[in-house]
């Protein structure tokens, strides 16, 4: 909407339309610009509280947690799939990590175990989807229920608090000024994922699968391998997020991660990734993660009644897709793609 207001008032409707269309073509760039403006406005109007080191650090840690699974989810959605088991994988993987700490497993080994646990959960989804030919939403809905049950059963009504403080130090306290090491690490992972998706052959296969799976198959592309890869990847990245989350609040309960999924999905779709597959980018999802974080920050920084939180996020999702993606999908329908 701020897009419209920067247009001089004497401009004709047609020119506004043209501008909108140009913005839609460069959706990611527009989103980035809007975010920069929002950040500047927030920095100027919150009397410095937004820029306070500790506040920034918390926001950065939140983003580090969400970014990994968001990158994974982007890849999954690019193949035309979906993974709704993220929250439950966090719960079960956190239980695994917690138990390992409780039983005195060496620190580095626990970190590996956390990553491995996530990857295994992802492999199980891949097995059901690629091997069992079960639609992704059904398969991941099923594993989601199963993992949640397992984490309740493993924890047996207790929480695990025996998390070494060194984990919190690594994940959310130490860093360069307000920038925690964890976010820098996740950003590096994100950059490699972006490189992989753009430059590596298998990355292009992922796009091809989402655009037209049958065509990809008949042209002999490794469709199965690409799909297995995306589900294992999101599992692995969810494992990474689990470690960050357990570091952020060092208590493991069955509710750990329970509200992580919707913000991540919101970030990916606001970032411009088409839910039907084939279109979208890692960069867009990174910006999506930033936007979700900005909304959550703004609601408290501007002392808004907390109940408005969800309404604001909902409106932003709808407005973002209407402005950013509306014409694209309308065009796609015209071309008979939907």
């Amino acid at each position: 909407m701020s897009v419209v207001t920067i247009v001089p008032s004497h401009t004709g409707l047609a020119e506004i339309g043209a501008l909108l269309r140009r913005l839609q073509r460069n959706y990611v760039a527009t989103l980035g610009t809007v975010e920069v403006i929002v950040v500047v406005v927030m920095a100027l109007t919150t009397h410095g509280s937004f820029l306070r080191t500790s506040s920034l650090r918390t926001s950065f840690v939140d983003m580090a947690v969400n970014l990994g699974p968001a990158v994974g989810l982007t890849m999954v959605i690019l193949t035309g799939g979906i993974d709704v088991s993220v929250a439950s994988v966090v719960a079960v993987d956190a239980s695994l990590v917690g138990l390992a700490f409780e039983h005195g497993v060496p620190f580095v080994l626990v970190l590996l175990l956390g990553l491995l646990g996530g990857a295994l959960a992802g492999a199980m989804n891949a097995l059901l989807i690629v091997g069992g030919k079960i639609p992704p939403i059904v398969a991941t809905l099923a594993t989601s229920s199963i993992w949640l049950a397992v984490s309740f059963w493993v924890l047996g009504g207790n929480w695990i608090t025996a998390i070494p403080s060194s984990l919190s130090t690594i994940t959310s306290i130490s860093g360069l000024g307000p920038l925690p090491w964890s976010l820098m690490f996740v950003l590096a992972v994100t950059a490699s994922a972006a490189y992989f998706m753009r430059q590596r052959p298998l990355g292009r296969v992922i796009y091809a699968v989402g655009n037209n799976q049958e065509a990809a198959k008949t042209s002999g592309l490794p469709v199965g391998r690409a799909k297995v890869m995306v589900y294992v990847t999101i599992g692995l990245l969810t494992g990474m997020a689990t470690l960050l989350l357990v570091g952020q609040s060092p208590v493991v309960s069955p509710e750990t991660g329970s509200n992580i999924f919707l913000p991540i999905l919101a970030a990916v779709v606001v970032g411009g990734t088409s839910i039907t597959g084939g279109r979208g980018s890692i960069l867009g999802s990174l910006l999506g993660v930033v936007l979700v974080e900005l909304v959550n920050d703004a609601v408290i920084l501007y002392h808004v009644n907390p109940f408005w939180d969800d309404v604001v996020l909902g409106v932003i999702i709808v407005v973002a897709v209407v402005i950013g993606l509306g014409s694209r999908y309308t065009a796609a329908i015209g071309e008979g793609k939907l």
Partner: peptide
């Protein structure tokens, strides 16, 4: 717990 941590952090930021 994690949600409480997030809310706590934002409160600290919002109210210097």
């Amino acid at each position: 717990i994690s949600q409480s941590e997030t809310v706590g952090a934002r409160l600290i930021a919002a109210y210097p």
